[in-house]
Amino acid sequence: MEKFKKLNSKLTPLNIENVDTDQIIPARFLKAVTREGFGDNLFRDWRYDNHDNLIDDFILNKIDFNSQILLAGRNFGCGSSREHAAWSIYDYGFRVVVSSFFADIFKNNALNNGLLVVQIRQNILDEIFNKLIKYPSLTFNVDLNDQKFYSDDGVFEENFEINEYNKTCLLNGFENIDYLLNIKEKIVKYEEEK
């Protein structure tokens, strides 16, 4: 896993609620046996029509800048547990998803792949969506160390929560699996005592 570094970026606003993982990556694109390349089909059915033509007014097709932060409506990532959703968002180039509410499994999957989820208050999320209508180029910073999400125009500054353990993992690129592999003795002991 790559280390999470402080970043500054414009936002990609996706003002839709209950974005489920079937929308993030439809099931018919889950046939691969490796983790690579899912970004091409991120939000596939919103990005392309039935004839594989780009749908011009979908946000990913509208903006021509590289954005590392996806700003999404509440209850992002609900539905299927497919980790391909987190892979496709990351593979597309996002490093952070900001919303007011995330589904549980998605949150775990994201963190396991170095994709930071930043939960902010609903009213602030609404305000940012509104502001971006007029100022789409406004840039924001995500500082995991200080747990801060703030805009360069000084208007928005939100603290966000993250567990100490997850924070350490993200900042250092540590993976859960390494932690578990390192405590195998304890696991064996648990099995014996059970």
């Binding site: 547990s81 497919r82 980790e83 499994i105 775990n108 999957n109 396991n112 993976e175 699996i177 578990l180």
Partner: peptide, 9 residues
């Protein structure tokens, strides 16, 4: 339900 990284774990 779990994700694939967790399946690996």
């Amino acid at each position: 339900g779990i994700g694939t990284s967790e399946v690996e774990m």
